[in-house]
Structures are given as structure tokens and as C-alpha cells.
């Protein structure tokens, strides 16, 4: 094949063009499927960010906290300071990264069960503080966030425009995480995840990388949280409960935690389709998601990404595998 022989920059360019065309085509789906695609992009990004923390060996159940901070800072900037949308987006993500830096230096001193517990507590602190603050709209939240101005052909008054934005954020996060995983940083993360003490004995100052992973994860979660807040037009403390933190972990685990990009993409596709069709039956969503989680953890521990390999292993060795 010719494609295999072009150089790596060419491959990246080709991938960008193909993905861009695919994303452009997604904009012409029916409205409901555009909605599903938007949620798919949102939860994939959140799932990937969650996996970054898992790479350094910590199991976070506090992603809702960063979604909340991101959404609220974008809402405050746009409503109270008349800040333009793009600036608000970047400032919100930076705010999240800063909060993660300050909090991370303290809470990443804890490991294992204690980190898990304290990340949950962190998300709840954020939510309850916001729910108690009158400036931030107390338990009602902030609503009436203005629709951003058009950007060239992208109109934010339609779902299409938002779809392009979220796909762009997803692509940005995906490329960043993929590059990270393939580089020296990714290998350092996996050493730390395997054994912090061993990593330290190799001269890796693991605290630095743990905080780094936490900050990067918070940056992308905050970015997508800010965009999501403006997309929905309202933010409220009731939205950012523990369930949001669970979704981050659901999409990553359904897809498979071994692959930082493909896993969350697959898991999130499964999650959002179920979510969209089950939202009218109260309770069915939790039941099915819980059932899926249990099924995956017992029968498919490596997630959906391992389905192809398991399927291939059923064929004899000489079977031409590249056609499947």
C-alpha cells in the first residue's frame, strides 16, 4: 500500500483531513443524532482525562468537580463580565488547571483508597460551596448564558456549530493524550502507575508527575465543562453530582482502560446511545449502566477494545487478519 510509505507528518496531515471531513459530515445528521454526537464528544473527552489520572495509578471519583468549576467560571465570565466566549473558554480551563495545581499538591500526597475518597470529597465541596453561594445563584444556578457569536461558517445558534466545537475539543484532547502516551512522559506515568517507589528509585520525582497528570486532566475536563455549560445555557449545582464522576469512569471502563483514546471513544458511544434512548424511563439508565459495568468487569475486563482481538483469536492462525 502507498499510504504505509508516506512519512509521519504526511500521515498526521492525512488523519487531520480525514477526521475533519468526517466531522463535517456529522454536521448533516438529523438533529437527534447531532445531539448524541455532541454528548459522545463531551463524555469521550472527560473519559480520556479521567484515564490520564489512572495512568499515574490513582482512581479519581472527582471529575464532576472540574466540570463544575469549568462550567461555572465560563458562566460567570460571560454573564457578569461580558467576556467573549473564546476567552471565557480558555480562562475557565486555566482556572481548573490552577485549582487542580493547588488542590493536587495537597491531595496527591494521599494514595489508593485515601485519594479515591478525598477526590469524591473534593467534588462535593465544590458543589456544596457553589450551592451555598448567593453570588453564584445558590441552588438555582446561573441561567441565560448568551449564545456565542458566529465564527466564520460555524453558527452557535444551531446544534451543528456546537458539534464542530466539541469534535474539535475532542480531537485536541485525543491528539494531546496520544502524543503524551507515546512520549517519555507517558512511559514515566506508566512506571509511576506500576510502582511509585520503584519509579522514585530510578530518580523520577513522582510527585511532580502525579500533579502534572492531575493538572492536565483538570485542564481538559474544565475546557469541556465550560463549553458544555455555555452549550446548555445554564449551570446548576444539581447537575454536577456524583453521577457525573461515575460517567467519566463508566465510559473509560466500558471502552477499555488499556487504550487512552480508542477506549473512551467506544465506551462513550455505547453510553450516549443508551443514555439518549433511556432518558425517558426513570431508573432504567442507572440500572442498565450498572449492569453493563458489572458485565464488563467480569466478562470483558479489558473493555470493548479487546473485542476485536478476542474475535480474531477464534480463527485459525493463518487466517488473513488484516481484512477484519
Amino acid at each position: 500500500m502507498h499510504i504505509a510509505r508516506i512519512n509521519s507528518a504526511g500521515k498526521v496531515l492525512l488523519a487531520i483531513v480525514l477526521l475533519g471531513l468526517l466531522a463535517f459530515a456529522l454536521g448533516f445528521l438529523p438533529n437527534r443524532w447531532q445531539q448524541i454526537c455532541i454528548m459522545w464528544a463531551i463524555w469521550s473527552t472527560v473519559g480520556m482525562s479521567w484515564l490520564v489520572i489512572l495512568r499515574v495509578g490513582e482512581f479519581s471519583v472527582g471529575q464532576a468537580g472540574f466540570l463544575c468549576i469549568g462550567g461555572y467560571s465560563a458562566a460567570v465570565l460571560m454573564l457578569k463580565f461580558n467576556c467573549p466566549f473564546w476567552l471565557a473558554l480558555i480562562v475557565s480551563a486555566a482556572t481548573c488547571a490552577f485549582v487542580a495545581l493547588v488542590v493536587g499538591v495537597i491531595i496527591l500526597r494521599l494514595k489508593g483508597l485515601y485519594f479515591l475518597v478525598i477526590s469524591l470529597v473534593f467534588a462535593e465541596i465544590v458543589r456544596l460551596t457553589i450551592a451555598a453561594s448567593d453570588y453564584l445563584g445558590a441552588s438555582e444556578g446561573l441561567f441565560g448564558i448568551p449564545i456565542p457569536n458566529n465564527l466564520w461558517f460555524i453558527k452557535f445558534s444551531t446544534k451543528q456549530g456546537w458539534l464542530y466545537l466539541f469534535i474539535f475539543i475532542l480531537a485536541l484532547a485525543g491528539f494531546t493524550f496520544r502524543r503524551m502516551e507515546k512520549s517519555r512522559i507517558g512511559r514515566i506515568y506508566s512506571y509511576i502507575g506500576a510502582s511509585p517507589d520503584l519509579a522514585q528509585s530510578f530518580g523520577i520525582y513522582y510527585m511532580k508527575y502525579r500533579v502534572q497528570a492531575f493538572v492536565i486532566s483538570a485542564f481538559f475536563t474544565g475546557l469541556v465543562g465550560a463549553a458544555m455549560g455555555v452549550y446548555l445555557g445554564a449551570v446548576g449545582p444539581e447537575g454536577y453530582t456524583f453521577y457525573y464522576s461515575l460517567i467519566a469512569q463508566i465510559v473509560a471502563i466500558l471502552g477499555g482502560v488499556g487504550s487512552i483514546v480508542l477506549g473512551p471513544l467506544l465506551g462513550s458511544a455505547l453510553y450516549t446511545v443508551f443514555d439518549e434512548y433511556l432518558v425517558y424511563v426513570p431508573g432504567a439508565r442507572s440500572l442498565i449502566m450498572g449492569g453493563l459495568l458489572l458485565t464488563v468487569i467480569f466478562f470483558l475486563p479489558e473493555g470493548l477494545v479487546s473485542v476485536r482481538r478476542k474475535f480474531l483469536n477464534k480463527f485459525p492462525r493463518g487466517f488473513p487478519r488484516k481484512f477484519i
Binding site: 439508565r285 450498572g290 467480569f298
Partner: peptide
């Protein structure tokens, strides 16, 4: 059956959490 490893056990427990909540909503309403 998960052999005491932290991550799968936590995921199993989150699954139970969601199943119980979903069952309660289905059977008794929200």
C-alpha cells in the same frame, strides 16, 4: 471473584450502586 484488586473492586461496587439506584427508581418511582 475480583481477587482483591482495588480498581476492579471499586468498579464492581459502582456498578452495584447504579443497579440498586435504578431498581429503586423503577420499582418505587423517584
Amino acid at each position: 471473584r475480583l481477587g482483591g484488586r482495588i480498581e476492579p473492586s471499586i468498579i464492581c461496587m459502582s456498578g452495584m450502586l447504579l443497579v440498586l439506584e435504578g431498581l429503586a427508581v423503577l420499582l418505587f418511582g423517584p
